[in-house]
Amino acid sequence: MNRHTREPGPGTVVVVTGASSGIGRAAAAAFAARGARLVLTARSAGVLAQVAARCAEAHPRAEAVAVTADVTDFAATERVARTAVDRFGRIDVWVNAAGVGVLGRLDRVPPADVRRLWETNVLGAFHGARAALPVMRRQGGGTLIDVSSVLGGAVVAPYMGAYAASKAALATLDEVLRQELRLSGDTGVAVCTILPAGVDTPFFRHAANHTGRRLRSLPAVATPQRVARAVVRAAARPRRRVHVGPGSRLLPWAHALAPETVRSLVRWRTGRVYLDAPGTAPITRGVLYEPSDATASVAGGRHAGARTAVRRVAGCTAALASAAAVRTATRHLPSRGRSSPHHRRS
């Protein structure tokens, strides 16, 4: 595959972690629709087998193998890489999409839960890179894609500290990998960091919640399919960082321009809008220690597709209204160089 000139298609070998749910599952479907040969991994064996079967049916030349594994276990992650090489002979694209979340004040979140989150979000991605990169270096090329978050950059939110820090660490690891690959002369291997804003996945349903507060609403969110399309494009034409979704570029830009204003707004909306009152939700550990199984799904039920359509219609309407207002104002302006009636009579 010439990843710089065309999208992944039949014959492309793709490994996706976290493939049973959310962005990983959407990415697996997107690659399968193009006829890729897939090795899919997650902890939920039954759901993963179903996802693999659907991927294999998505295109006449698509193939999919399910390998149940926990990315926090390096030996298990190496087994995933060996399966790809033994079955298909190479690894063209490796997508680290496995991730978990923890909500809560940093001084009240159990250290064990934070450790588990970091083992999945950071060490799991490191394990994926450690398993995939030697294969890609031997074959002379490949693309490693890590799903990070805008929350791993300048913009942070209360009660998301452990998660945001893990995503920031992942973005830093990617920067280091790029430098090291340049130094070693492995210019055919690309590392791409995907930076979504809010995404309509089961993330909050699966996250450990130590706030005692129910999730009331979310900001504008993108569909998992939109992020999956960005992943496929990154596999075809790798870039250092790819921003996806509403606010993914605007928020960092606004934060750089007026940091305290953005911090205040995010803090206020998180505390007053996005979360309900204290005592409205039980303390849970989500899927930190157990597979998602029956709760695994692509979307999180936030109707991101409909909300995106509404935003686009509203944006187009506003643009058309603005254009009409400008045209009306222009028609009522006197023509340049035309004399007024008073001048003509004098």
Results as ranks from 00 to 15, higher is better:
R3H: 15
T5S: 14
E7K: 11
G9A: 13
G9T: 15
G11A: 02
T12N: 12
T12G: 08
V13M: 00
V13C: 02
V14T: 09
T17L: 09
S20V: 04
S20H: 10
G22S: 14
I23E: 07
F31T: 02
R34N: 14
G35Y: 05
L38N: 05
A42P: 03
R43Y: 05
S44N: 02
V47Y: 00
L48H: 12
L48Q: 14
A49G: 12
A49Q: 11
A52R: 06
A53P: 00
R54A: 01
R54C: 00
R54E: 08
H59N: 07
P60I: 04
A62I: 01
E63K: 01
A64L: 06
T68E: 15
V71H: 03
D73N: 15
A75N: 12
E78S: 04
A81P: 01
R82E: 01
R82Y: 00
I91S: 00
A98N: 11
A98L: 09
G101H: 08
L103A: 10
L106P: 07
P110K: 00
D113R: 00
V114H: 06
E119I: 01
N121D: 12
V122G: 08
G124Y: 09
G124C: 09
A125L: 09
A125P: 10
F126H: 15
A129G: 15
A129E: 12
R130Y: 15
R130G: 15
A132Y: 04
A132L: 13
M136G: 01
M136D: 00
M136F: 04
R137D: 02
R138H: 06
G140F: 09
G140V: 08
I145Y: 08
I145C: 13
D146P: 07
D146L: 10
V147P: 01
V147Q: 05
S148W: 06
S149K: 07
S149A: 05
L151A: 00
G152K: 04
P158V: 13
G161F: 05
G161H: 09
A164I: 03
A165P: 03
A168Q: 14
A168H: 15
R178Q: 10
E180M: 13
L183I: 08
C192E: 10
I194F: 04
P196N: 06
P196W: 05
G198F: 15
D200M: 13
P202R: 02
F203D: 07
F204I: 10
A207M: 03
N209Q: 05
H210Y: 12
R216I: 02
R216E: 07
A220T: 11
T223Q: 08
Q225T: 10
V232P: 06
V232M: 09
A236S: 15
R240P: 03
W253I: 07
W253N: 01
A256G: 11
A256L: 09
L257K: 07
W268I: 06
R269F: 11
Y274R: 09
D276L: 15
T284K: 04
R285N: 01
R285E: 04
E290I: 00
T295S: 13
V298C: 12
V298M: 14
G300C: 08
G300H: 05
R302I: 06
A306P: 02
A306M: 12
A318L: 15
A321Q: 13
S322R: 15
S322Q: 09
A323K: 03
T328E: 08
L333W: 12
R336H: 11
R344C: 11
R345C: 14
S346K: 13
